[in-house]
Amino acid sequence: MSATISRILRYTLNERILHWVAGLTYVYQLLTGLAFYSPHLFWIAVLLGGGPTSRFWHPWAGLLFTVALFWMLEVWRNDMRITDADRAWAKAMPHYIRNEDEDLPPIDRFNYGQKYFFWVMLWAGIIMLISGLALWFPERIPWNLRYLRYLAILLHVSAALISIGAFIIHVYMGTAMVRGGFTSIIRGEVTPAWAKMHHRLWYNRIMGAAPTRR
């Protein structure tokens, strides 16, 4: 290992921008969506410019969110594929939860949980896009197909709730639990020790090839 390398590039600028377009639009969706989800949270819409404004922008920001998701799929498709190494890691997940990281098999760029988070968000996003379009233009759905309107609202809320569950864990891990994670998605860099501890196969792979440094 070269002692001169102090930082490894984990996320390119492109990936970081991508992440934050998705992240910020999601948060906007979350806040405006929750405002209409519960009368006790309607004040969020008021804070964000009023009910009609929030209602107006929610679907548009949703479109941007889905664009970001598909862009992410394009960029991370290979990294997100679930491998045998992930399945071995998944079996040892209780150790991960208890912070016994030394008992975990090595993994590549993303772990099983991160990959699942991505796929859950992607599918929830697709469901929210399709059902959201139905909520956006209910009168375009003919009256005799009205069960589609009813289905859409249930799907939209259910997919939103599932994504919120995943999102809570994601934010908790990215900020409070996995130290160094948040800086990596802002500044793009991690230390070699961080890479070795969390993503040993990825570390070996990129160090074996041309070591990235800035």
């Binding site: 912070n99 030394e102 639990m177 130290r179 160094g180 070699p192 020790a193 501890m197 969390h198």
Partner: peptide, 26 residues
């Protein structure tokens, strides 16, 4: 979910990387 992650933090805390010892666990 919020309660869950809070309890997790209180019980297990963060994952810290010991910089000079790569295998380190906090």
């Amino acid at each position: 979910g919020l309660l869950g992650v809070t309890l997790h933090y209180l019980r297990f805390g963060p994952k810290q990387v010991k910089e000079d010892h790569a295998e380190g666990k906090s």
